[in-house]
Structures are given as C-alpha cells and as structure tokens.
Amino acid sequence: MSDASPLLVVENLSKRFPSTRGVVRAVDGVSFEVRRGTVTGLVGESGSGKTTIGRSVLRLVEPSSGKAVFDGVDLFTLPPKEMRRYRRRLQIIFQDPYSSLDPRMRVGAIIGEALDTHGLAKGAARQARIAELLTKVGLQPEHARRYPHEFSGGQRQRIGIARALAVEPEFIVADEPVSALDVSVQAQILNLIQDLQAELGLTMLIVAHDLTVVEYLCDDVIVLYLGRIMEQGPARAIYARPRHPYTKALLSAAPVPDPDAERSELVLEGDIPSPLSPPSGCVFRTRCPYAKPVCAEGDPVPVPVTGVERQLSACVRRAELEAEGVL
C-alpha cells in the first residue's frame, strides 16, 4: 500500500523561453504533489507543457521560477555538484527509445554507464547487475553485447527502462513512454512499467497525451492546457465525472472500446492559442463552448471539488455547469 505522504511537491513552477517574437510561457504557475509509491499522469494536448514540467522537475530544463521539493529538499536550489548526487534518486524514460540511446555504444555499456558514474558496481558485479537488469525488462543477458540498431522499437524502450532502473531510483519521469512504438507492442511496455512500478515501489510521473495510457497506469491525473492546470485529482474520480469542460472534451475525444457505451460528445473548435500571447482569464475560454464574459476576468486557480477528496478544478463556472447538468 502506498504512503499517502507526498514525495514530490511542486509549487508555482514556471518556465519561459525567449524567442524572436517575445516570451513563450511554456509552464505558468503550476502546483501539484506526487504521492509516494503512486503514479501521477500529466495529460493534455501538444503544447500544454507536459514534457517541460517533467524535465524541469529533474532540472534537465532549468525552471524560470518555483519550487520542486523532493523528499524535503528543494531541487531548484541545489548547486550542480549536489544535484548530481540526487540524480541517482531521480531518473527519466525518454519518448524516443532510439534517439536516446548512443548508437556507438553497446547495450551493456549504455546500462553500465550509470553504474560507473555513481560508482555502484565494478567488474563481475557490474556485469551481473547489467544481466539482471536486462532480464528484469524481458531481454536476454547476451543482448548486452549488441548495439541499439539491432533491436526493435519495443526492445529499445526496454533498454531505456533498464538504464533508468540501473541506479535504483525512487522517482521516475516517463515522457510519453509508448507514443513512438507500434500499437502491437504498446501494451507490452505498459504492462512492464506497471509491473516494475508495483514490484519496486516506484513513484512515477507519466507524461502522456493518450488518456487510455493515463487511465491504465495512473493513480492521479493532472490535466494541462497552455501551461496551466485545468483539473487534477484521483484518476478514478476524474474519469467517472470530470469537473472541467476541457477534461470533458478530452474524454469525449478518447476512443471507447465498447460501441454500445453511452458517452457525451464535446468537440473542441479551433486550435490551441499561442503561448506567446495566451488569452486573459481562463486560457481555455477561447475554445470553451460554455465560456461567459466572467471567464475572461481574473486568473482561475484549481479549487477543491465538494465531496471528492483531492479533486480540484480551475473552472470559474463549475458550480453553474454542475447545476445545469453539464459537468
């Protein structure tokens, strides 16, 4: 059973990228928690800031402001030498398993590189650890002698997972871990991630645009739009009854395997606005079919949903829409 206490607490995380046309607000004041031993999903359309959040937490991208308190320590305040020590506890599984693996290195060297960096194993112990990791992710020990190009996409992602597990991390960011894979192998990798998370007691942050992936893997969900949180809370509660129009629209667009299942249709019109000049007030209002003038005022933040523990919604008209039966 997972501990209810948070392992990671993110507060007012913002990331801005300068461009020739202005400043891109990739992430804008995001706050959330990831509970110890659980899986939290970051979901939203392309350009919502999912990957930037995941990489900022690990400081693969330096945040513009905010905090990321991991096990009581703000990672954003650590000097490079101290942050390097923490990298053993925080790892990442990349989206593209081919480009994230050095084609000039054999698989054994790729996995063993982390062991060397942190001084975890040498000689026979190192080789045994590499063989153990390959076996754990469903590959063979002799695969250590091969190069990445000799494997399929699914096998390469298994190698990436083995590399992330090599240093026995506590927290892993999985950035769209199956989006670059054939549909036929996606389920295999999802099952592997689920089994490893349960076996090792990992805490994970999953970046995904596929709501079926999030529903399958995650305990909690954070719904993002244009760098801001629209809704967050327990996955079961959000999938059963979304409390923000954007979440409802995403769920309406997701395929349902049961052709006889009833579903509400909420089709979004237009494209996501430019992060160079986001709309005032609720950033989703320009595409929301329920928007009113009040939605252009203020800066809505996620507030608790009455009667549902830990579920929050950033819709200023939520109470009205609930009364109308829309949400």
Results as ranks from 00 to 15, higher is better:
Val34Thr: 13
Arg35Gly: 12
Arg35Val: 01
Val39Ile: 13
Thr40Met: 04
Val43Gln: 07
Val43Ala: 06
Gly44His: 12
Gly44Ile: 06
Glu45Gly: 09
Glu45Leu: 09
Ser46Tyr: 09
Gly49Arg: 01
Gly49Ala: 12
Lys50Asp: 05
Thr51His: 02
Thr51Gln: 13
Thr51Lys: 10
Thr52Lys: 14
Ile53Lys: 13
Gly54Pro: 03
Gly54Thr: 06
Arg55Asp: 07
Arg55Ala: 05
Ser56Cys: 15
Ser56Val: 04
Val57Thr: 08
Arg59Trp: 03
Leu60Tyr: 13
Leu60His: 04
Val61Ile: 15
Ser64Cys: 13
Gly66Lys: 05
Ala68Pro: 10
Val69Asp: 15
Val69Cys: 14
Asp71Pro: 15
Gly72Arg: 03
Gly72Val: 07
Gly72His: 02
Leu75Gln: 06
Leu75Arg: 08
Leu75Phe: 04
Phe76Leu: 12
Thr77Ser: 11
Leu78Lys: 01
Lys81Gly: 09
Glu82Ile: 07
Glu82Trp: 00
Glu82Met: 05
Met83Lys: 00
Met83Glu: 05
Met83Phe: 10
Met83Ser: 06
Arg84Val: 04
Arg85Phe: 00
Arg85Trp: 00
Arg85Cys: 03
Tyr86Val: 08
Arg87Asn: 05
Arg87Lys: 12
Arg87Asp: 01
Arg88Ile: 05
Arg88Lys: 09
Arg89Asn: 12
Leu90Thr: 14
Gln91Asn: 12
Ile92Trp: 00
Phe94Arg: 14
Gln95Ile: 13
Asp96Tyr: 02
Asp96Asn: 14
Pro97Arg: 15
Tyr98Thr: 08
Ser99Pro: 03
Ser99Lys: 04
Ser100Tyr: 02
Leu101Tyr: 07
Leu101Val: 08
Asp102Asn: 15
Asp102Ser: 03
Pro103Ile: 10
Arg104Gly: 00
Arg104Met: 01
Arg104Leu: 01
Arg106Tyr: 07
Arg106Pro: 12
Ile110Asn: 07
Glu113Cys: 13
Glu113His: 11
Leu115Thr: 02
Leu115Trp: 00
Asp116His: 10
Asp116Lys: 10
His118Cys: 06
His118Asp: 12
Gly119Leu: 11
Leu120Phe: 15
Leu120Cys: 11
Ala121Leu: 11
Lys122Val: 15
Lys122Ser: 12
Ala124His: 07
Ala124Cys: 01
